[in-house]
Amino acid sequence: MISTFKRPSLTGLLLIKAIQQTHTSRIYSKPPKDKIGPMQSVFALCVFAVTLLAPAGWIMHHVPEYRQRTPPHP
């Protein structure tokens, strides 16, 4: 297997180092006004889990029906 990864040249490495040294983040943030409690965090995680897993569960539940269908005619 031939690797397509190419090592950067010396000038490329120097350029990357120069950019990294001169780059400063311009993101400023304040502390939150209200702290989020553990119940709100658990609720948010449950909502994300249901949002991601419900469609996959629906598909997995209906796989036998999908297999019994005749393929569409072109």
Rank of each mutant, 00 (worst) to 15 (best):
V50T: 10
P74A: 11
K30R: 15
A44M: 11
H62M: 04
T22D: 01
M39T: 11
M39E: 15
V50Q: 05
Y66P: 00
W58F: 14
S29P: 00
H62K: 07
G37L: 04
D34S: 14
P64G: 00
Q40E: 13
K35R: 13
P38M: 07
G57V: 10
P38D: 07
V50L: 13
G37I: 02
A49P: 01
I16Q: 00
T70W: 07
R67F: 12
Q20F: 00
C46L: 14
M60L: 13
H23R: 04
S3W: 04
I36K: 04
I27A: 06
G37S: 06
Y28I: 09
T11N: 11
L14W: 00
M1W: 09
V42D: 03
I59F: 12
I59V: 14
P72V: 02
I27D: 03
T4H: 07
L45V: 10
I2N: 10
K17H: 08
I36F: 03
R26H: 09
K6H: 12
K30I: 09
G12T: 05
T51M: 13
Q40S: 13
P8M: 04
T70R: 12
P38L: 09
M39C: 10
M1E: 08
F43N: 07
M1D: 10
P55R: 03
T24H: 08
Y28M: 08
P32W: 01
R7N: 15
S9A: 05
I16T: 02
I59D: 02
L13N: 01
M60H: 07
I16Y: 00
L13S: 01
I59M: 10
R69S: 10
P31L: 15
P8D: 02
V63N: 04
L14K: 02
M1V: 08
K33C: 06
R69F: 08
V42K: 07
H62T: 05
R26T: 11
I19L: 06
T4Y: 07
G57M: 14
F48R: 10
M39S: 13
I2M: 09
M1P: 05
S3Y: 05
S3H: 06
Q21K: 15
D34V: 15
A44F: 11
K33T: 10
K6V: 15
V47L: 09
F5L: 15
S3M: 04
H61Q: 08
F43V: 08
L10Q: 13
P31N: 14
L45G: 07
V47Q: 06
G57W: 12
P31K: 13
L13M: 07
I16R: 00
